[in-house]
Design a protein around this nucleic acid. Structure first.
Lengths: 134, 134
DNA sequence: AAATAAATGCAACTCTGTGGCATTTAAAAA
DNA sequence: TTTTTAAATGCCACAGAGTTGCATTTATTT
């Protein structure tokens, strides 16, 4: 995908087309698994300030370009694409060997019974196992 | 439950019956939802050192007395009882209003299809919604 | 090209959690 | 019961993730 596409997406979302954001977006779209803060710093060759990176991630997430994932490792990870939501549920797969986090395809609505008085709005599932690369 | 019971449980698990552990265990067994580090500090009236508390939690978890939960809030929470495991799966319910975390009953095994090459070993589910108190 | 509003970089800070080490305490041995 | 010993505690300093205030720079608008 050429640079014009990234710029188009940013414009469409009402985000300024800055150097950091273009590089970051390019990276997100070129990789298939979720990224930690450190992955991203490395990918951007440590040329970006920490707070700038976190702020960029926040704006991307708010714009629905990426979504964040908590994979039980203590580290938040970020992946390209809309977050799982009503009608668009997806689970995350954490590889127990390489620790990579992948977004899985659409998820069949889960049947879960909760005690009376509890009302479930959404279900977030984390699958743990071994990925196709390991 | 009287103090003897707490002591019995600690002994059974091969843990020394110290003041901190007895108080902590007593607290865990008297409350129905998962506790954050701060909840616990407050419950112990801030009389326990931070590292001692974390170490006590670690030993309780290792002994299978409690289990830790990551509820997407960034904070680890701890709840009484064995962790969800093969044949003993349970989900956690996070109330979107009061932020309380509850352990739900046994969970029907989830049917989730993953791409070929991926092997799922376990599924962890977080339910989000509104609890019976809210 | 000038004005404006937002993004960046820097520094200081908060908060969760960990690790070393001297001291205390529970359990075991005498 | 007293002594021994091994583990638990408290204190301190530290590490890492993430946030915030503020001055400066940069993208966009006029």
């Amino acid at each position: 995908m050429k640079e014009e596409s990234y710029k188009q997406l940013l414009e469409q979302k009402g985000l300024k087309k800055t150097k950091v954001r273009i590089t970051l977006l390019q990276h997100f779209m070129s990789i298939e698994h979720a990224q930690s803060y450190n992955d991203l710093q490395a990918a951007l060759v440590n040329e970006v300030d920490k707070s700038t990176l976190y702020r960029s991630l926040a704006s991307f997430e708010q714009a629905g370009i990426i979504h964040s994932i908590n994979d039980h490792s203590g580290l938040t990870k970020y992946a390209f694409g809309q977050p799982p939501s009503q009608g668009n549920e997806h689970a995350h797969f954490v590889c127990e060997q390489c620790k990579m986090v992948y977004c899985m395809g659409k998820l069949a609505p889960l049947q879960l019974n909760v005690p009376k008085g509890f009302k479930t709005n959404k279900v977030q599932a984390i699958l743990k196992g071994v990925c196709s690369d390991c």
